[in-house]
Design a binder for these strands. Structure first.
Lengths: 188, 188
DNA sequence: CCTACCGATCGGTAGG
DNA sequence: CCTACCGATCGGTAGG
């Protein structure tokens, strides 16, 4: 792991624990046994560090979603989306936390880029639900609200999901998909 | 509205927009046409301001939950809980945002007090679900996960719920309760 | 990668 | 409620 990667990793941990503004560059340096100024050989600015963390987390979420065959039956597609989302959060809890919590501290231009990626991600959920409704697999009055409902239930999990916790990822995925599919009227 | 109330209100707005650490006491003072030092006639410290905002938001959530008759049929009880939660978020969006986002910046002692209140609040949901399962109104494998699922779907709404938005609170409550009850197996 | 520093700003206080 | 200030710390840079 080269220095830059170490810096991003350490920053991700500290940002997720204390927040972006409550973490100083000197905090990051100290955790790596460096002096504050030495970080700038490897990074451009504090904001660049935040951007890398947030954007890489967006990569992870999108990589899962785009790898799902859109021709799958909507029920299977949604199951895969739920599983992928929980997997990213469980495997990348610190970066996911920074992604959800700290993206507002990016510059307006970088915020727009993240919003665009987030919208593209959410569209996968909305489309899976809409196609399920069209095919009669799901029954919901308002697919947009249903998508927000499902994404809300998933996003908040970064607040309480602990990979080392009593519930393993498989078991949680199973229970969450069951709740989601039943909410959408897609399962007995 | 006395000065102290004005300060708490302004701080709530700024904390919700920029976050606690990115808001300076001088920012709050400037918004009220005061000098920074003048705030301290009315407040003790920046942390006290955060505490007041967070704890009052907790008051609002708990006031709704405890006003619900626990002998109601579980379905009705849960409907009321969902309605109450969305009502607080819609009516107190800025304070609710600070409640969810900034409580980690309180001292450990104050964090504990908030956690205790949050746990008490969540217990209302868990108990409503558990009693629904016992009475046969709900069918869920794991009431604890079901409660986390419902609370997650509700909590995240502060991220996208806009009181001035196209969807009014009544309509949103209706759709959310329908999704929640169906997820719990409590409605055809 | 370190030492030493820059200007700016922080939360909070004294004294009026 | 203001002026003026305190010590501390911030992100970042120059020069080696």
């Amino acid at each position: 792991m080269d220095r830059r990667t170490q810096i991003l990793h350490t920053a991700g941990r500290l940002f997720s624990q204390r927040g972006y503004h409550a973490t100083s560059m000197r905090d990051i340096a100290r955790a790596l046994d460096l002096q504050g100024g030495s970080l700038y050989t490897h990074i451009e600015s504090k904001e660049e560090v935040l951007w890398e963390i947030v954007n890489r987390a967006a990569d992870r979420f999108l990589a899962h979603a785009t790898s799902i065959d859109p021709d799958l039956p909507p029920r299977e597609r949604l199951k895969a989306l739920v599983r992928g989302h929980l997997t990213v959060i469980a495997q990348e809890l610190e970066h996911a936390t920074v992604f959800f919590h700290e993206w507002k501290f990016l510059s307006p231009e970088l915020q727009e880029r993240i919003k665009a990626r987030r919208d593209a991600y959410e569209a996968h959920f909305r489309e899976a639900i809409e196609s399920g409704v069209q095919r009669g697999e799901f029954k919901v009055e308002d697919p947009k609200i249903a998508a927000l409902f499902v994404l809300s239930a998933l996003n908040w999990t970064y607040q309480w999901l602990r990979p080392e916790g009593p519930l393993d990822l498989e078991a949680l995925t199973e229970r969450y998909t069951a709740l989601v599919l039943r909410a959408l009227g897609g399962e007995a």
